[in-house]
């Protein structure tokens, strides 16, 4: 098996259209910003570099390490990419990785890809880079510890965001899915953090020109520190609130008019599922029968054609 799917990629059908569109909107804005920033600050040479780096993240995810009892952990890479390549380039690289995983391997859906890119590309880049940027002038040990911790928090934040999106879509009960998701990713995140640390230590030793304070500060300003601290604080505040008393969060969402929209469609075009002028159920029953007959006929024709083709060959 060349490629093993991970469990943070939400498939199509699991998020409602509204949640999908909201996260597409955020993602489009962020990726658009990243494109214009990188176009301005980096030369044309950087585009092939980012492509190869995206392939690197993809390939590095194949390097797994045995944990225990036949399970193995593997690497997601968002924080590492953002620390080494800079936050904007990191976002673009992770967007390409998540995009190809969804498009080519169906690991994650297309309509929900905005949410997947947000969780695994944008959140991880903001947290991973911002926290590292905070301590960029500190000693080596401090930097590595913060980078590892940042990678762990980034993984947890991605899991938290995915849980919240699923819950807002009315796909899961928060009190069931959140502890499960956070529990699993607390472990996965440890592996992620340790590998990020080990990889950074290795890169710093062999190619110090790629990873120094001056380069890092040039790639992202203080705004990233503020952003990462805010996002981390939000995650830290939401998770106990959500897992401890989901009712509290539910009330917040209800007040914001979110939860209702997650469960009954607000885009109801036809009230009560009937066309006013078609009137009572007799007509719709007949229509349903006709549609059912058409489906059955279509199926029979398709299967028949296929059987015939197979016997001809």
């Amino acid at each position: 098996m060349l490629y093993a799917p991970t469990n943070l990629h939400i498939p199509d059908g699991f998020l409602t259209i509204i949640v999908s569109l909201i996260f597409w909107l955020i993602t489009i804005v962020m990726v658009g910003l990243a494109v214009s920033k990188t176009n301005k600050s980096l030369g044309e040479k950087q585009v092939p570099l980012m492509g190869v780096m995206a392939a690197f993240i993809f390939a590095a995810q194949m390097l797994n390490f045995p944990i225990a009892g036949g399970t193995s952990g593997h690497f997601l890479g968002g924080a590492l990419a953002a620390i080494v390549l800079g936050p904007w380039a990191g976002i673009l690289v992770m967007t390409a990785v998540v995009g190809v995983q969804g498009l080519l391997f169906q690991d994650g859906g297309l309509l929900v890809m905005g949410a997947n890119i947000f969780n695994m590309g944008i959140l991880t880049a903001v947290i991973g880079f911002g926290l590292y940027r905070l301590v960029v002038h500190q000693k080596r040990g401090v930097r590595l510890v913060v980078a590892g911790g940042g990678a762990w928090i980034a993984t947890m934040a991605a899991a938290l965001a995915a849980s919240l999106q699923l819950w807002l879509s009315g796909t899961t009960r928060l009190e069931i899915v959140l502890p499960a998701m956070l529990g699993v990713h607390a472990l996965i995140g440890v592996g992620e953090g340790l590998i990020t640390v080990a990889a950074l230590a290795y890169i710093e030793q062999t190619r110090p020109d790629l990873l120094n304070a001056e380069k890092t500060t040039r790639e992202g300003g203080r705004g990233w520190i503020v952003g990462s601290v805010l996002v981390t604080l939000a995650a830290v505040l939401i998770s106990p609130l959500a897992s401890g008393s989901p009712d509290g969060l539910e009330r917040v969402a209800e007040n914001l008019g979110f939860l209702g929209s997650g469960q009954d469609a607000p885009y109801q075009i036809l009230p009560d599922y009937t066309i006013p002028f078609l009137g009572e159920t007799a007509v719709s029953t007949i229509l349903a029968g006709v549609v059912g007959a058409v489906i059955l006929m279509g199926l029979l024709i398709l299967v028949g054609r296929n059987l015939r083709r197979r016997t001809e060959v």
Partner: peptide, 15 residues
């Protein structure tokens, strides 16, 4: 640590 070094090695080779 070994896996991390492998990731780092892969990174420098890719770069």
């Amino acid at each position: 640590k070994t896996t991390g070094s492998m990731v780092g090695q892969l990174f420098t080779r890719s770069y």
